Every structure is written in C-alpha cells, then in structure tokens.
Computed example of a mutant assay.
Amino acid sequence: MEDTASRNAYWKANIRIILISLAIWFICSFGMGIILRPMLSGIMVGGADLGFWMAQNGSMYIFIILIFVYASVMNRLDREHGLEE
C-alpha cells in the first residue's frame, strides 16, 4: 500500500513539473512572441523589439533553460523517492 502511495505521489509531482514547464514555454513562445508582441514593441533588445526577439530567439533560449531546470528538478525528485540511478 505504501509503495502505491509513493508511486502515485511521484507521478503526481512529475506531471505537475511537466505542466509548469509547458506553461512557461507557452507563455514565452506563443504569449510573448505572438499575442503580446504589439505591447512589447517599445522595449528594445539587441537592436530589435522584445516581441520580435522572443519570437525569433528568446523562446529557444527559454526552452534550453527549461531542459536543464527540468533535468535538475527531476533528479531531485528521483532522489526524494529513492529512484536515482
């Protein structure tokens, strides 16, 4: 019984981490690059407005950062549940 509860807690935490990562990625890529682009046009980053920069470069940088953060958080979660390699 305890094993099942631990397994369910692990997967619940795993799904929560995935959903948070997807929400951040969606906000940065679709939200800031497309929906909020007109509002961000006055902020300049590297010679281009922030909305254009997020659509072209920023969302890729955010995605790469999310990969490393996800790996780190999942390693910690694995250690907490005794599933580390």
Rank of each mutant, 00 (worst) to 15 (best):
E2L: 09
E2H: 13
E2S: 14
D3H: 14
T4Y: 13
A5M: 13
A5Y: 10
S6N: 12
R7Y: 13
R7A: 14
R7C: 12
N8P: 11
N8L: 15
A9R: 03
A9Y: 04
Y10M: 05
Y10W: 06
Y10T: 09
W11N: 11
W11K: 13
W11F: 12
K12Q: 11
K12W: 11
A13W: 02
N14F: 14
I17M: 13
I18C: 13
L19Y: 02
L19G: 01
L19Q: 08
L19K: 02
L19N: 03
I20Q: 05
S21H: 11
L22I: 10
L22F: 11
L22S: 01
A23K: 02
A23Q: 04
W25R: 05
F26N: 05
I27R: 00
C28H: 13
C28A: 15
S29W: 06
S29A: 13
F30R: 10
M32F: 06
I34H: 11
I34T: 09
I34L: 12
I34D: 08
R37I: 03
R37N: 07
P38D: 07
P38H: 04
L40G: 00
L40I: 03
S41R: 07
I43S: 06
I43K: 00
M44I: 13
M44R: 03
M44A: 09
M44T: 14
V45I: 15
V45R: 06
G47K: 08
A48H: 14
A48T: 15
L50G: 02
L50H: 05
G51K: 01
F52S: 00
F52N: 00
F52D: 00
W53K: 03
W53L: 01
M54T: 09
M54C: 03
A55W: 04
Q56H: 13
Q56E: 10
S59F: 05
S59P: 07
S59V: 11
M60L: 12
Y61C: 01
Y61K: 15
F63T: 06
I65G: 04
L66P: 02
I67G: 00
F68N: 07
V69K: 06
V69L: 02
Y70V: 12
A71D: 05
A71R: 09
V73Y: 00
V73L: 14
N75W: 07
N75Y: 05
N75L: 14
R76T: 04
L77I: 10
L77G: 04
D78R: 12
D78S: 12
D78H: 05
R79E: 04
R79Y: 08
E80Y: 06
E80P: 06
L83W: 05
E84Q: 12
E84R: 14
E85C: 00
E85V: 12
E85D: 11
E85T: 08
